[in-house]
């Protein structure tokens, strides 16, 4: 699965409350890119270097949801 398709799949799973625990979404401020990185709890994430030292994990911001106008 390519990066774009993997990110789309991840966001769809987050929207349905079924985000995989092995990956989290990160934002790289040097490129503006959203990417998937191994989560800290995954075996691949332990000790793995971050994609960029300033990259921030943004799963939590997405997971709280977006206000829907119908509310």
């Amino acid at each position: 699965m390519n990066d774009a398709r993997a990110l789309e799949n991840h966001m769809q799973r987050m929207a349905s409350g079924d985000a995989p625990a092995s990956k989290v979404m990160a934002f790289d401020p040097t490129t503006g890119e959203l990417m998937l990185v191994p989560s800290a709890s995954s075996s691949r994430g332990r000790g793995a270097p971050p994609p960029h030292p300033d990259a921030v994990i943004v799963d939590a911001i997405a997971e709280v949801g977006f206000f829907a106008a119908r509310e």
């Binding site: 990110l7 987050m14 929207a15 997405a62 709280v64 949801g65 829907a68």
Partner: peptide
């Protein structure tokens, strides 16, 4: 990013972005 996914697939944005409750 979700908007561009919608533009490619036609799926509504709430397919990609969860709803927030009050």
């Amino acid at each position: 990013e979700a908007y561009e996914m919608h533009a490619r697939t036609g799926k509504p944005l709430d397919s990609y972005l969860k709803h927030m409750t009050g």
